[in-house]
Amino acid sequence: MTERLVVSPSPHWKTDKTVSGLMLDVVVALMPAVLASVVFFGWRALTIILTSVSSAVISEAVYEKAVKREVTIKDYSAVITGILLAMNMPPGVPLWMPAIGSAFAIVVAKQIFGGLGYNFVNPALAGRAFLMAAWPLHMTRDWLAPGFFGGVDATSSATPLAVLKGAPGGTLPGIWDMLLGNRAGCLGETSVIAILMGGIYLIWKEVIDPRIPLGFIGTVFVLTWVFGKPGALFQGNAIYHILSGGLFLGAFFMATDYVTSPVTSKGRLLMGIGCGVITVLIRLWGGYPEGVSYSILLMNLVTPLIDRAMVPRYYGWKHEARKEKTL
């Protein structure tokens, strides 16, 4: 009897999918969109992303050191927040904006509430909302016309959504430009194909639940088709609506954030649909041209309620319910 044995509760096997592994999958899935942003908006896009990521990681490390918590930058969650925030910015913003936005996202929206797992809204979106409220002009005016690898035209250009909403002097880009990303918009939202590649990768790796993106995009499609054209039903330009703005980015990468979305499958579907409804409300009848980020933030806030309401029918529960009724 010389062996020293480990005693622990069952199960004695664990999957090799860890938190950092899942987060790394998301980083990998974001790479096509990062690449597309560099292709269409030049190296400037990369500097914005790198600034945002380093600020996020440094803020996380500094804050955790300051409050004597374990430093968790190795779980890649801060990296994701940094990339996502950068993806949500117009390509013409000054570099201090991603830096401040990421620091805010990490420190105020995430770490103050207890770090990964305890934040109640998506940190990247909170950072974006903060920047939007703090420097609205930069966030709504610094658009650049896309060029190929740094051939960026410095004149500002209206986004397709603004055109859809009736911005003067804008024309809608062709459908292929919309798909590829050859249009004005935030860094990471323009190339639908690149985002879709990442999204499909995440679904294939079982990292995200397809119910959220499908519910989200599907709802926007149906509602904009029905109500998209003022004064007439069923004539809206639904294709342009789902392809423009940050819908794909938000639906695949931000609404699916684990911490701030419901845990049950029914709840996730509801989350997707809710995001879609709010997005359409804002886009068609609200004051802003784009509503994806606010719709996700609002649904983040009701996630605990969805979790409470959307409880699955437990195994064998039918019988129990009947018994309780007869009592």
Partner: peptide, 9 residues
Amino acid sequence: FEPAAVMLT
């Protein structure tokens, strides 16, 4: 620096 309008809201 460029003031952050959000602080006044």
